[in-house]
Design a protein around this nucleic acid. Structure first.
Length: 408
DNA sequence: TTTCAGTCAATATA
DNA sequence: TATATTGACTGAAA
């Protein structure tokens, strides 16, 4: 849903004043930092797996979407911010021109305090690729290492114990989120009955490469040195587990297996029990007949959601195909990437087109993605579909009185 | 006490 | 300059 950089940039080129960025949107609307917004949108969790706190940003999003002047307000804020920036800049320029000594004075005066402040700040640890690889290997052997193992790892890699602990926490958590997405895709694929499509077929193959997205894009080989990709193994294992496959020894990933199985039971994406119009327990309904083709763009999904006969499952399924799609299905996706309507939340046609523009730039589906970057494209679709789903549910629920329940 | 979810914020990347 | 990644942190739950 949210943009990936390229399309956003292009959108800005077309409509420089209508681009809404993650930073502005996050800080103004969601109360999150840019990085969190990016993360949230790139790797959304199924609604039913979100805690109350985790749902807050989406509720805020919904409230914002319900505001008829949402984009305008944001634009205003952006303008004001820009103005203030220019003002500051202007004044600082004139300051430095008028009294150059003052700037040096500032330097002197600040030199004393920022320096220690800087020293107080712990430098960010950046793990070397070899270190990451070693940690991944260790993870594959033992996702939950004992303190002793952690100690050993830390010693071997010359890292702090806390760094190793943190790495395992983060890695587990991020892998889990990737698995959610996988499950969503798997679930919607089977629901949509599109598993025979080339894109769907390739999706499983793409899966292994998908694995490396859990940790960024680095392509280190796994411990076993498989050619298919870094986390190919752990991912396929995990997915197998989560999809009810017998999988390997439960002892190794003992805690993962039940979790996977559990999530597989309700692998349906964003089936918010208290929100959606799915059946109880948030189970998926039958796939809609008129669900858009897998090639449907995320933007279209978003825009047409409220009018859709069924809820986000379709958007998810539409996306799931594209999300998992490798290069093979890219062409069709690209060919269909075109925006023609406005977001559902538009209050007026005029505002709608403006809003569409802004949302497009914000969420990055304003134009066809660069043809050389299929991964971007599929990621964008993934984001789009997942968040379309959430937003749609929120919208639906909001249109009923349920919104009251989520007030916070 | 450990693990997890959510987030920040520094840094990388486009 | 915007978005993506990721190590670290906080608070809550188990």
């Amino acid at each position: 849903w949210l943009t990936s950089l390229k399309s956003s940039r292009r959108a800005r080129k077309c409509a420089p004043n209508s681009a809404l960025g993650q930073r502005l949107f996050g800080e103004t609307i969601l109360g999150l930092t840019q990085g969190s917004v990016s993360d949230l949108l790139a790797r959304p969790k199924p609604w039913h797996k979100l805690s109350l706190k985790g749902r807050e940003p989406f509720v805020r999003m919904q409230l914002w979407l319900n505001d008829p002047n949402n984009v305008e307000k944001l634009m205003d804020m952006k303008r004001m911010e820009k103005k203030a920036y220019m003002k500051r800049r202007h004044s600082s320029v004139s300051d430095s021109q008028s009294c150059e000594s003052s700037s040096t004075g500032i330097d002197y005066s600040q030199g004393a305090s920022p320096q220690p402040q800087h020293q107080l700040k712990k430098p960010r640890v950046v793990l070397a690729p070899e270190e990451k690889e070693a940690l991944k290997r260790a993870y594959q052997q033992k996702p939950y290492p004992s303190p002793k193992t952690i100690e050993e790892l830390a010693t071997q890699l010359n890292l702090k114990t806390s760094t190793v602990i943190n790495w395992f926490h983060n890695y587990r958590s991020r892998i889990r989120r990737e698995l959610f997405i996988e499950e969503i895709q798997a679930g919607s694929q089977s629901q949509a009955g599109s598993s025979d499509s080339p894109s769907a077929r390739s999706s499983r193959a793409a899966h292994s490469s998908e694995g490396d997205s859990c940790d960024g894009v680095d392509a280190e080989g796994p411990a076993e040195g498989k050619a298919s990709g870094p986390e190919a193994d752990e991912f396929s294992n995990a997915t197998t587990k989560s999809q009810g496959g017998s999988a390997e020894s439960a002892s190794e990933a003992g805690e993962e297996a039940p979790r996977g199985a559990r999530s597989a039971e309700k692998a349906e994406p964003f089936q918010a029990e208290n929100l959606e119009d799915t059946d109880d327990e948030g189970r998926l309904r039958a796939p809609r007949q008129s669900s858009p083709p897998a090639s449907q763009r995320p933007g279209e999904a978003l825009e047409t959601l409220p009018n859709s006969a069924t809820e986000g499952d379709a958007s998810t399924s539409a996306a799931s195909t594209s999300v998992l799609t490798g290069e093979s299905s890219y062409k069709s996706k690209e060919s269909s990437e075109k925006i023609s309507s406005v977001p559902s939340t538009s209050s007026t046609p005029a505002a709608g087109s403006q809003k569409a523009n802004s949302l497009q730039s914000l969420f990055g589906f304003s134009e066809a993605a660069s043809s050389r970057n299929t991964r971007d494209s599929s990621l964008r679709k993934k984001k789009a579909a997942n968040l379309n789903n959430i937003i749609h549910r929120l919208e639906k629920a909001a249109s009923r009185e349920e919104a009251v329940e989520w007030e916070f």
